[in-house]
């Protein structure tokens, strides 16, 4: 029991890494509402240099400059969507961690549904056939049993 706890603790301490904050204290806006919006926007924007991190998580300099830009535009009175549009117009959909639903991304969004439908169709056909065989099958089988 004690050993189990100890092992759990050791493993947990290896896996659990304290969150590090990329956002520099001097970037943070005094207005907490604006800062909250900035954090929310930053979480949805991809860091172009590190690619699998948001600019909110990234320590890259370009990510830092983008965070500052996001805050400056918010202070200047841009809406959240306005800020995102501004950056998207320069870096493309790629900068959005959540890809938008539109013509070119239809396969991405609808593909899984399509495959699921194909699967359901396949399973349905399979079981229907199975049922038909069962209805016809046992009758033939019993006759065989009798003859043996």
């Amino acid at each position: 029991m004690l050993r189990g706890l100890l092992v759990t603790f050791v493993l947990a301490s290896i896996i659990w890494v304290p969150p590090s904050f990329a956002v520099d204290p001097n970037e943070i806006l005094e207005d907490s509402v604006l800062e909250g919006r900035a954090r929310q926007i930053s979480k949805g924007l991809r860091c172009i240099v590190c690619q699998n991190q948001s600019i909110d998580d990234s320590d890259a300099q370009l990510a830092r400059d983008l965070r500052v830009l996001v805050r400056e535009r918010l202070v200047a009175g841009d809406s959240d969507q306005g800020v995102v549009d501004y950056i998207q117009s320069r870096y493309g959909d790629y900068v959005l961690l959540n890809p938008p639903v539109k013509g070119t991304t239809a396969v991405l969004w609808l593909g899984p549904v399509g495959f699921a439908l194909i699967g359901i169709f396949g399973i349905t056909v399979y079981f229907r056939r199975q049922k038909k065989l069962q209805l016809a099958g046992p009758a033939a089988g019993t006759e065989k049993d009798r003859s043996s």
């Binding site: 172009i48 240099v49 300099q61 370009l62 400059d65 983008l66 500052v68 830009l69 950056i87 320069r90 870096y91 493309g92």
Partner: peptide, 13 residues
Amino acid sequence: PKSRGAIAFGVSG
């Protein structure tokens, strides 16, 4: 110094 030109051009490096 603040990447404004670089961001305008959508530069990554």
